[in-house]
Amino acid sequence: MPKRRLTNKVKTFRFLANEMTQSELGDQVGVTRQTIAAIEAGKYSPSLECAFRIADVLGQPLQEVFQWE
């Protein structure tokens, strides 16, 4: 099975959500600013629960925020 990468549009939706900062998003999701930065940079794949929380805070469906490349 070919290995596919998880990509995301967290940064885009963060800016669309009144230019929310990484720190603000992290506080609402319950993770650190560094973790949000790592997710945006594709250096960390969040848990399912964390991904749902991020999508919920950004007001988007999960599949809009996270996709398979």
Partner: peptide, 8 residues
């Protein structure tokens, strides 16, 4: 205090 999250 730095939060210890799932990535850590």
């Amino acid at each position: 205090q730095e939060l210890l999250d799932e990535r850590d």
